[in-house]
């Protein structure tokens, strides 16, 4: 396994009562048309929260609003107690966009060092992040010469530099094989265990099982925010896919 030694060291259990993200009556419009309607939810620190829903549900828009890349039309959005995109938050939020948002013509190490420098961190912390995603042996390899899973992990490493308090990951496991997906999820769970809050989107419903809670989004509305257990229990679904479909059909909000 490529979990870094640092992650195996036991730290004090994180306090889970603090709020990492608070959303109240959030409306977001993209080029004039409303994309997110009246969202309200709360995410506790140290939680892994899955953002699930079909394509076009508004997952990416919500994530972009949280990292401060998308203007908010109305309502309240607080990230670690701040408005999104403030200077304070730029040091504490790690964001991985959909697709590979790293420089493919650079090596893993060069990418990580650049993102470390942007955050004012040392080269050593860049290498720590590379080690944390298990790419130490590939640090000097160009990203475009890595496998898909390795490249995704390289992108993740750039977000991990300097231990951000909140990680926002837009479909980090899309298009990856089950083994690599498993590795990424294990790694995220290790980070959450240390108190990092993680918001991760996916349209693979089975990944809901990996999360502490799931936000189900459809057509820009929040269908439900519940634990994976509750999702199966309340819908009587046999699988997460089935549960989500039932939830949509019933049209009810939980």
């Amino acid at each position: 396994m490529w979990l870094a030694p640092a992650l195996r060291t036991v730290r004090l259990a994180p306090v889970r009562t603090e709020t990492a993200i608070r959303v109240q009556g959030l409306d977001v419009a993209l080029r004039g048309s409303d994309v997110l309607h009246d969202l309200a939810f709360e995410i506790l620190r140290g939680a892994i929260v899955g953002l699930m829903g079909p394509s076009g549900a508004g997952k990416t828009t919500l994530m972009r609003a949280i990292v401060g890349a998308q203007r908010v039309k109305g309502g309240e959005l607080r990230v670690l107690g701040h408005r999104p995109g403030t200077a304070e938050l730029r040091h504490r939020v790690g964001y991985v966009t959909q697709g590979l948002s790293v420089y493919r013509d650079l090596t893993v190490q060069q990418n990580a060092e650049y993102f470390a420098a942007l955050q004012g961190h040392s080269r050593a912390s860049a290498m720590d992040a590379v080690a944390a995603v298990g790419l130490s042996d590939f640090a000097r390899r160009r990203v475009d010469r890595l496998s898909g899973g390795q490249a995704s992990r390289a992108s993740l490493a750039c977000a991990l530099v300097g231990d951000p308090a909140l990680l926002v990951l837009d479909e980090p496991t899309v298009g990856l094989d089950p083994v690599t997906r498993e590795e990424i999820w294990q790694h995220l769970q290790g980070l959450a265990g240390q108190g990092t809050t993680i918001l991760v989107s996916s349209h693979v419903m089975d990944e809901a099982a990996r999360c502490d809670s799931v936000l189900l989004l459809r057509d820009g509305r929040l269908l439900a925010h519940l634990t994976p257990g509750q999702l199966l229990e309340r819908t009587g679904g046999t699988s997460y896919d089935d549960a989500f479909l039932r939830l949509i059909r019933s049209g009810e909000s939980m």
């Binding site: 990292v67 890349a69 948002s101 420089y103």
Partner: peptide, 13 residues
């Protein structure tokens, strides 16, 4: 188009 600019803008850059 590669997403790096958007990502850079979430950093102190």
């Amino acid at each position: 188009t590669g997403g790096t600019l958007e990502r850079l803008f979430t950093t102190p850059l």
